[in-house]
């Protein structure tokens, strides 16, 4: 590169030397930097307007959750609280009522943890092995099953929910946390399998061949060669699955009982319960509490989150 650049630079003065007089009339020297022109202002203006659209709901949520009910009734939802109170948060966490229970969202939080942790681990384990088998150990029909799997990702859940109720009932898992875990493993499989398949097929096939020559078997190659070098993609999968499973509502409401409802279902029941006085500040605190786990993951993971959804989406 630098070798090629050198003669070109050397040639320039020689060429400009002859018509120097004429050239000097035109612009010379460093081009002026245009810091802010109308175009830039439009770009930033547009982005700021959209940012307001995206940020205002978050702002309103936080502000409302820190106000007392009297202040809410009097004031402006956009205004910051005159008197900050954390009582709505305490109430949302430990006292808010859903149906018969009045022990707040904490129950839903722990249910969601109990669902999300095993479902994430299991679904990723299963999908990673699937992806590995699909790339490195193809067998007759493996691509057919994979195609069905990817098509399945587009089937509306409503078509499959009832037969799954029957299957779970037959397995004795209906209403339990483990039944819901199984459902999440099944419905997470297409996208996560795709993610791993794409990742493993991007690795040099020679690596796999070298490991076979070195005498490693199906599990040896997977666990000792591929998994240790796939940490980024595992992180992406964890991000995708934790947020996806945590945010699920439909499966939670169908396949669990009230005492094992995940947080989203409980939140909906608190906010949209018909009885009692509506406590908007408690509702907002509950909403923020429910969104806290995926939001934390989102802000901590930054680019990996983007990479995850882009990898899942673009190649799909």
């Amino acid at each position: 590169m630098s070798d090629a650049a050198f003669p070109a630079r050397a040639a320039t003065p020689a060429r400009t030397a002859a018509p120097r007089g004429r050239l000097l009339d035109g612009p010379a020297g460093v081009a002026p930097t245009r810091r802010m022109n109308p175009k830039r202002i439009m770009v930033y203006g547009g982005l700021i307007v959209f940012s307001l659209y995206y940020l205002l709901p978050l702002w309103v949520m936080v502000m409302t959750s820190l106000k007392g009910m009297p202040e809410i009734r009097m004031g402006n939802i956009f205004a910051p609280p005159m008197e900050i109170t954390f009582e709505p948060w305490v109430k949302a966490w430990s006292q808010a009522c859903t149906g018969l229970n009045c022990d707040g969202l904490s129950r839903g939080f722990f249910n969601s943890v109990a669902i999300t942790v095993p479902a994430t681990i299991l679904s990723i384990a299963v999908a990673a092995v699937n992806g590995y088998a699909l790339v490195n150990w193809r067998f007759k029909g493996s691509e057919v099953f994979f195609t069905i799997l990817i098509f399945g990702a587009f089937i509306p859940y409503q078509v499959m929910i009832y037969p799954i109720v029957i299957i779970l009932r037959e397995m004795g898992l209906m209403g339990s946390v483990w039944g819901l875990v199984l459902v999440h493993v099944v419905f997470g499989m297409p996208i996560i399998t795709l993610l791993f398949r794409n990742y493993f097929s991007s690795l040099p096939p020679e690596l796999f061949k070298a490991a076979r020559v070195d005498g490693a078997g199906f599990w040896g190659i997977f666990l000792r060669v591929l998994v240790p070098m796939s940490l980024p993609i595992f992180t992406v999968a964890v991000i995708l699955q934790v947020t996806g499973i945590w945010n699920d509502f439909l499966f939670g409401v169908i396949y669990t009982r009230p005492d094992s409802y995940p947080m989203t279902v409980q939140l909906n029941n608190i906010v949209n319960s018909v009885q009692g006085v509506r406590e908007y500040n408690v509702n907002m605190a509950a909403t923020l509490l429910t969104g806290l786990v995926p939001l934390t993951i989102y802000f901590l993971s930054g680019k990996l989150f983007v990479r995850g959804i882009a990898a899942g989406a673009v190649k799909g």
Binding site: F50, S51, Y54, L56, P57, L58, V60, M61, T64, I77, T243, W246, N247, D248, F249, T264, V265, L267, N268, V271, Y280, N283, M284, T287, T290, G291, P294, L295, I297, Y298, F299, F305, V306, I309
Partner: peptide, 19 residues
Amino acid sequence: ILFPYALSFIVTGVVWQWI
């Protein structure tokens, strides 16, 4: 621009219900 995508539809619905 992307953060709402990390939130569930339930959270989204409740927030906009309030706004």
